[in-house]
Amino acid sequence: MSNAAPLLEVRNLRVEFPTRRGTLVALDDVSFSIAPGEVLGVVGESGAGKSMTGAAIIGLLEPPGRIARGEILLNGKRIDNLRYEQMRRIRGKEIGAIFQDPLTTLNPLYTVGQQLTETMTTHLPINPAEARRRAIEWLELVGIPAAAQRIDSYPHEFSGGMRQRVVIALALCAEPRLIVADEPTTALDVSIQAQVIALLKTLAREKGTAMMLVTHDMGVIAETADRVAVMYAGRIAEIGPVREVVKHANHPYSAGLMASIPPLDRRVERLAQIDGAMPRLSAIPRGCAYNPRCPKVFSRCADERPDLMDAGTTRAACWLYASEVPHG
């Protein structure tokens, strides 16, 4: 799967927030790619920059945030330097976005049918009657019962779980090649969550859609993603196949993160914990950002910032895996 030409490529992305107390670097040197039909999970604690990566890709960074360096390529074409109007067109047609709160995506004044058909007629060469027929199909596909009747309902007439499915239908109906989903299941109950995840997975598989799945829920990642990127303090700490990262993480941070998940199958007296907290953007430590909390810290970590390097099964930004001998 990784042999295919990447659909999305992010190279050395750096996002800055100029403030009056100096410039905050929210994302630094973030690089990854997603192949068609592949699901990349992005995990990390709140403030690690995972949502911001998604926002940068879909061109919706909150001002005054801006891309300071690096590039984002969709199908080999740069999309990070497009004007708002051009980006808006790409956002509907080639990139679909799903956010945590379905209410922010749906317009309360229009029926879901109107919103679906409008999206399709704008981006696809079809007439309104055809669009309506497809809208019903999409609603059926995302598991909305009696879709033919429900299509003329307004968003508020749906329950939370159903509304999130409408959002998914809306993100998918223009048949984008990439979906950026930011915590798509966090607002949902476990039983509904499972339904939505199963749906996203099926669609990625059947339609060959690439997906970037941003979430803090490792369980969702474990069963949906093909590869995972673990983020810490605005950088990728580790990236690799999901099974390796979840079960045999190489970076001490990913390992600590996975270990702190309470197990469901047994009771432990004391959960593994990572002491301390992730640093604020204004106070990121010198060297490796994780070094003050890292159990395997050594002298080099406090001085030099590691880039992603080969760690066998995954790529990790950690000096433990440096092949050459530290100089000096």
């Binding site: 969550q193 474990a222 979840v246 079960k247 469901l264």
Partner: peptide
């Protein structure tokens, strides 16, 4: 319990 995501893959 069945609906909980499976971490052990």
């Amino acid at each position: 319990m069945e609906a909980i995501p499976d971490l052990d893959m």
